[in-house]
């Protein structure tokens, strides 16, 4: 069991490192998915099978897929990769690395303090989790659902392409707001003004 844990941990770390250093967005996402899967394995080893499943289904399955969708939609071509190459210089890694290193040191110091963990091998059943969810954490569940509702509405609104404005402009001919540019693709013109309201 412990071996599985260590292997999964190492894989997670390596794939994370690779994920943040890739130039191509899709590559990075794939590496990230690998990282998430290995974390799920870690969860399973620790004794939280329910969460492991959830991790795979929701995190790796839904959220990452969403990422992939958006990346594909944006249709970044080779130009984007060149830009990335240009942006990323070796010297840029110095500062953040230092910050991160200090952070690691602090956390390590904390963890290495008294009260070091001894692995309890007892797994926590999903049933237990469910009971606790419906018990003391009921309100958290409600809040989470409201949060998701809000996210849903916000995402819908933010992702819109303001179709009324386009109709209005095509009716009037010369636009009242936007200067009279040639009607082109939505992506080009719709970005000329801010989305009404804010999320």
């Amino acid at each position: 069991m412990e071996l599985a844990f260590y292997i999964a941990a190492i894989v997670a770390i390596i794939s994370t490192v690779l994920a943040i250093t890739r130039l191509n967005a899709v590559h990075a996402l794939l590496y990230l998915i690998v990282s998430l899967l290995s974390v799920a394995v870690v969860f399973f080893v620790i004794g939280a099978p329910f969460i492991a499943a959830l991790e795979v289904i929701i995190y790796a399955g839904a959220i990452m897929v969403l990422f992939v969708f958006v990346v594909m939609m944006l249709n970044l071509g080779k130009a984007a990769i060149d830009m990335e190459k240009q942006w990323q210089r070796g010297s840029m890694w110095v500062g953040p690395s230092i910050l991160a290193a200090i952070l690691i040191a602090e956390v390590a110091y904390l963890v290495a303090g008294p009260g070091a963990a001894v692995y309890g091998a007892a797994a926590i059943e999903p049933k237990q989790v469910g009971i606790v969810l419906f018990g003391p954490y009921l309100i958290g569940v409600e809040l989470a659902s409201m949060l998701l509702l809000g996210a849903l509405v916000g995402a819908y609104h933010l992702g819109r392409r303001t179709p009324e404005k386009e109709k209005r402009e095509s009716r009037n001919g010369i636009g009242t707001h936007a200067s009279g540019t040639a009607p082109g693709g939505d992506l080009v013109r719709a970005g000329a003004d801010r989305p009404s309201g804010s999320a």
Binding site: Y59, A155, H157
Partner: peptide, 17 residues
């Protein structure tokens, strides 16, 4: 997890904008 999901939704929509 749920919070991450919500945040990803909104975040990506913002990215589109």
């Amino acid at each position: 997890l749920s919070m991450a999901a919500a945040e990803v939704c909104v975040g990506l929509a913002l990215v589109l904008q």
